[in-house]
Computed example of a mutant assay.
Amino acid sequence: MNNLREVWSKRFVYYINELQKYLKYIVSGHIAFVLVFVIGAAGYTYSEWLNTAPKDFPAFIVVAFILSLLLAMSTPVTLLKNADSVYFLPLETKLGEYLKLALRWTYFSSIFVSLAAFIVSIPLLTKIAGATKNEIIYFFLIVLVLKYWSIQTEFNYRWASSGRGIWADRFVRFLLLVAALYFLLSASYLFLIIIGILQGIYLSVWAKRKKEVPFPFDHFIEVEQSRMMRFYRFANYFTDVPHIRGMTKRRKWLDAFYKLAPYEQKNTQLYLVMRTFIRTNDYFYLWVRLSFLSVVGAIFIPFPFVAIIFTGALAFATVIQIKHALLSGHEFRMDLLFPIDPEARKSAVNKLLRIIQFVQALFVLLGILIKGEYTLLMILVPVIVFVISELTLRMSKK
Rank of each mutant, 00 (worst) to 15 (best):
H30R: 07
A32W: 02
A32D: 00
F33Q: 01
F33E: 05
V34S: 06
L35N: 03
L35K: 04
L35F: 11
V36R: 04
V38R: 03
I39N: 03
I39S: 13
G40A: 09
G40N: 06
A41C: 05
A42P: 00
T45Q: 14
Y46Q: 10
Y46W: 09
S47W: 07
S47H: 04
E48K: 14
W49A: 11
W49S: 12
L50H: 01
L50D: 03
N51P: 00
A53S: 07
P54G: 07
P54V: 09
D56K: 05
F57W: 14
F57K: 09
P58G: 10
P58D: 14
A59T: 11
I61T: 15
V62G: 01
V62S: 02
V62C: 07
A64M: 11
L67H: 08
L69I: 15
L70Q: 13
M73T: 03
T78S: 05
L79H: 07
L80I: 03
L80H: 01
L80R: 04
N82L: 11
V86Q: 09
Y87S: 15
Y87R: 13
F88Y: 08
L89R: 15
L89F: 02
L89W: 00
P90W: 04
P90K: 11
G96F: 05
Y98W: 08
Y98F: 12
K100A: 12
K100L: 10
L101E: 11
L103D: 01
L103V: 01
L103K: 13
W105L: 12
T106L: 08
Y107F: 12
Y107E: 05
S109K: 06
S110L: 08
S110Y: 03
I111T: 07
I111N: 04
I111R: 10
V113M: 14
L115M: 15
A116G: 04
A116R: 06
